[in-house]
Computed example of a mutant assay.
Amino acid sequence: MKLSRYEQESILNCNAGEQTATLYTRDKAVMRKLDTLVADFPDIYKLTGQDEVSKTYSFPKSYVSYRKPRAVSTEQRERAMQMMIANSRAKGD
């Protein structure tokens, strides 16, 4: 079944009373990432349900992360660009 981009949602549910977070998703990219985590870390990440268009996962709430945006200065951006150009030239691209 083909879903629109709008329908490819992910819903994270966690509360203060439990140590487990639940993630419901219809996004194939998120499913691939979580399926890899389930395969690599079965004692931490669990697939708790699925149907033809969605999957539900559970994992420790402490694995949910909120981060501030990374601030990159103009100087850092320029240095990174120069490194990429140098690497590209070294590979012969």
Rank of each mutant, 00 (worst) to 15 (best):
R79C: 01
L3H: 07
Q82F: 03
R77P: 04
K55S: 01
Y66V: 12
L37K: 14
G92D: 09
V53K: 02
P60M: 09
T22C: 02
L23A: 10
R89V: 15
T56G: 00
Y24D: 04
T20M: 13
A21W: 06
G49F: 02
A29P: 08
R77H: 11
Q76S: 05
M1V: 13
S10H: 08
S10F: 07
E18D: 12
A80G: 11
T36S: 06
D40C: 11
K61V: 10
T36R: 13
Y45D: 06
Y57F: 12
G49D: 06
Y45L: 03
Y57K: 10
A16P: 02
A90H: 08
Y57N: 08
D51L: 00
E9K: 02
D43I: 12
A39C: 13
N15P: 00
Y57R: 11
L23P: 04
S88G: 15
Q8I: 08
E7D: 15
K33L: 09
L12S: 03
D43Q: 15
G49T: 02
K33V: 10
V72G: 00
V30Q: 14
R70G: 00
T20I: 14
N15H: 13
Q8V: 07
L47R: 14
R67M: 03
T25P: 00
A71D: 10
V30M: 15
R77F: 11
K28H: 10
T36L: 07
